[in-house]
Design a protein around this nucleic acid. Structure first.
Lengths: 182, 182
DNA sequence: AACCTAAACTTCGAAGCTAAAGAGTACATA
DNA sequence: TATGTACTCTTTAGCTTCGAAGTTTAGGTT
């Protein structure tokens, strides 16, 4: 759900120039990296969204399928665990699972050994959808990176991983309080 | 609005390993870059959200303030133009502007030379909020990139710009059909 | 056994977004 | 002048999410 309308922004270079006019204390190099990251992500989500809607699901549902598949066989997780991995509240998770059960992508049942718990399990249909989405996604991703040499890919991967480690470390976890927008 | 709950995911390396188990045709190098980009973005939004909520606004409102400031003096744009830049529907823009007018961040008036149009203009209070948010953001961004050498920053900025150019080119614009998340 | 506390999930009400329909204005053409 | 068309913004209805309260179950204490 949550289809995103088209995006139309000024060229990145112009945007950086405008930032420098309006806020002198800004390092243009830093701003370039940050702005590019943010824009890139939004465009990628638009691309993924086109693919998932082609398959009759939403990006939101694809996220759930990914989390289940990545958890490994037998592809089961509880709603709370799913919610944490996706960065959602338990309430939102409940509703999202409702929908996905209705679409046959997952099943929901009580854990008989501990009746407070619920087990969400991927169905074969759900796994098929995930696989189809992965195929489309990997084609897009390869296209996206086609201009990068192997060396550049290696450096990019390493640098991004380092940045990620830093933020994940400074946000040990727990309640983020932040806002939407990609 | 749209505060994001905390995020808790398996380590990136484990996730890549799981992808390889479940989907053989995947280039781990590509997946590493793409996953890191996506996660990094989410963490950054959490960080920005903490800062904006500290200032009594939302990330969504900050996006509007940014667009107006970046448009340059006299800091005026129409709702449609704002909606395109932010990737929102006109309807959402109407409501968001409503709120921001109520909070004194912007003003809304009809364009007397063409009464179909509306002009949204940044107020001094709005500009102050933007400036305060920028100050917090630039500190965070510098911290984020502190482990990167000047050479690495240059390469990262250049490579990301190249990727961005490629997606923006392949999505000339117009109606994206995609999904939320991040 | 009765009670307390914690944990997992769901329900409820409010906020924000989308898609589609509606209303107002400008401009071209007849 | 009248009409048609395009454009800009707003309104309406439905969906998804959040925050907080509520329900059910497990497990430890007295």
């Amino acid at each position: 759900m949550g289809d995103t309308p088209g995006v139309s922004e000024p060229a990145l270079e112009e945007q950086i120039a405008a930032y420098q006019r309006e806020f002198r204390d800004l390092d243009p190099q830093v701003e370039k990296i940050v702005s590019a990251l943010s824009r890139l992500n939004r465009r990628m989500n638009v691309a993924y969204g086109r693919q998932t809607s082609e398959l009759g699901i939403s990006n939101a549902e694809w996220e759930v399928l990914k989390a289940l598949v990545l958890s490994g066989a037998p592809y089961r997780l509880g709603p709370s665990d799913l919610a944490k991995r996706l960065g959602l509240t338990p309430a939102a998770m409940t509703h999202r699972i409702d929908r996905m059960v209705g679409e046959g992508l997952v099943t929901r049942e009580r854990d008989e050994s501990n009746r407070v718990r619920v087990i969400v399990e991927l169905t074969p249909e759900g796994r098929e959808k995930w696989l189809a989405a992965m195929r489309l996604a990997s084609v897009f991703e390869e296209e996206l990176l086609q201009d990068l040499s192997p060396a550049e890919r290696a450096v990019l991967g390493e640098v991004l991983t380092r940045l990620l480690r830093r933020v994940e470390h400074s946000q040990p976890d727990a309640g983020g309080r932040l806002s939407d927008l990609d």
